[in-house]
Write a protein that binds this DNA or RNA. Sequence first.
DNA 1: CCAAATAAACTACCATGGTAGTATATATAG
DNA 2: CTATATATACTACCATGGTAGTTTATTTGG
Lengths: 230, 230
Amino acid sequence: MDLAVKHNPQNRGSARDFVYETLRYSILHLKLKPGTKMSEQDVSDQFQVSRTPIREVFVRLFQEELVEIYPQRGTYVSLINLRHLEEGRFVRETMEKAVIREAAGELSKSDLFKLESNLAAQEVCRKNRNYFRMLALDDEFHATIFRACGMERTWSTVQQLNNDFYRVRVLRLAHDFRWDTILSQHYAIFEALKNGEGDRAEGITQDHLRMVIVEKDELKLEYPDYFVDI
Amino acid sequence: MDLAVKHNPQNRGSARDFVYETLRYSILHLKLKPGTKMSEQDVSDQFQVSRTPIREVFVRLFQEELVEIYPQRGTYVSLINLRHLEEGRFVRETMEKAVIREAAGELSKSDLFKLESNLAAQEVCRKNRNYFRMLALDDEFHATIFRACGMERTWSTVQQLNNDFYRVRVLRLAHDFRWDTILSQHYAIFEALKNGEGDRAEGITQDHLRMVIVEKDELKLEYPDYFVDI
DNA sequence: CCAAATAAACTACCATGGTAGTATATATAG
DNA sequence: CTATATATACTACCATGGTAGTTTATTTGG
């Protein structure tokens, strides 16, 4: 494991928070592969902080199911659970359809502006084939809608249930991804929201979220040791 | 703060887990009042363990929004947030209606048996006016349905979003609660699930979950310092 | 050469001491 | 008496050392 980062105490915020953010990001973006061993000692050496804050970070990551702690044996980056993938999808679709319906016609000028700006940024990313940033903008688009309804907490929670899905999306990033379709769907959702067409917004959202069904067998073949057997 | 508990190392499981379970239970059941200060030192004295595992427990509870940590100032039991209450309700209703619909007609003999046993236990509790246990059985009834659909994780997540609601339910426990109606609704849900009447199960669930709307102003008057102002 | 017993290495768990930052009580100046 | 300055107490944060449990490497007996 090599993250090549050091905690700079100049940075505002505790060492704990810094390590947490860094490790979380590393796991979700597969800089730390599923199944990787991460001992307190190793990580504390990497970050140049003592083991105490590292342990506390492990507890946080454990709570989010990003790592698994085996007492006296070791702490490992969680394997991707394909069953969790389905469950996360189901929750996301159910919740987002409900939220979209609430949001239709109720968004403020400011919220609509945020969405429109986001779409413009997505255009740029698509042209430049910056898929990594595209992924972030995609999530940010949907987060904005949740936030506009005062449901940011719900968004975070749903995202947490979709941590494994996020990792799969990163895995698929290299492959030819249907960004054109995705972007046009985002436009359609935006228009429907603006015009207060709840039913239509909900319908597009359903198609949108079902588009990204992944070929599980294919994934398991390509990255055999990233997944848990079920 | 006085929990009058000591960690017995004989108990299987780490001190950390024991303290976590105990504190979590204490907060949710208002043995620790919202706003209570809980310093590392105090808690570690109470449990007769060192401050290290206590800190790790605080991190876990913080992640669940059960405590708030102010660096160098103190750690406090979270106040109840009435806005979170609404959000939790919305998520619960949305998800449970979707799950109930999936479950209708698909439950195994074993699952139906569990539900029926649970209902029998509820009868006993109602007769004996054991409302505390009734609360647990209520949740267990709904958890069983989620679990039967392979959605235990979802249930836990939804529950976490409803932590504040749980505390309010405990507060209301003393008051005259409509247990008769609740129980009869449980029966109706059970029957609908058994007969595969998805629509009907969903409808009852909606009524069921909307029954427990609480009078916020009343609550704030009775327990003024338990809530955050919004 | 192989299998069982032993030794060494490694792990997360917990205890404890020191530190910088914050809040409160006390003392001091006006 | 009041407002400001100082001292004290308290907090969570981090560093570090020891420990029991686990895994791996080594040795021993056949």
